[in-house]
Computed example of a mutant assay.
Amino acid sequence: MQLSEPTEQEIRERAHRLWEQAGKPEGREEEFWRAAQQELRNEDKSNTQRTPDTL
Rank of each mutant, 00 (worst) to 15 (best):
R41F: 09
L40Y: 01
A22S: 15
H16W: 08
N42M: 12
R34E: 11
D44I: 13
H16A: 05
L40C: 00
N42E: 14
Q9K: 13
E31L: 02
T54V: 13
Q37L: 12
R14D: 00
D44W: 06
P25D: 02
S46C: 08
E8R: 15
Q9W: 11
Q37T: 08
L18A: 02
T54S: 10
L18N: 04
E31Q: 15
P25R: 06
E8F: 12
E31P: 00
A36Q: 03
W19L: 09
R28L: 14
G23Q: 06
S46W: 09
A36H: 01
E31V: 06
W33I: 14
R34I: 04
A35E: 11
E39W: 00
R12T: 05
E43T: 06
P25M: 02
T51D: 02
Q9H: 10
F32C: 04
L18E: 06
K45E: 10
P25A: 08
Q21C: 06
N42V: 10
E31C: 07
A36T: 07
L40T: 01
T51Q: 11
T48C: 12
E39F: 04
G27Q: 06
W33Y: 15
E8S: 14
H16R: 13
R50G: 05
L18M: 09
R12S: 11
P25V: 09
A15T: 03
E39I: 01
R34G: 01
R41P: 03
E43I: 06
E8M: 09
R12M: 10
L18K: 02
A15L: 04
A35K: 03
K24Q: 12
R50L: 14
L55E: 15
Q9R: 14
R12A: 12
N42F: 05
E20W: 05
R34C: 08
R41T: 04
T54K: 13
Q9Y: 12
E39C: 03
R14I: 00
Q38D: 10
W33M: 13
G23D: 09
K24V: 07
A15W: 00
R34L: 05
E10D: 12
T51A: 04
L40G: 07
D53R: 03
S46K: 12
Q21G: 03
H16Q: 08
R17F: 08
R28T: 02
K45T: 07
D44T: 15
R34Q: 14
E10G: 03
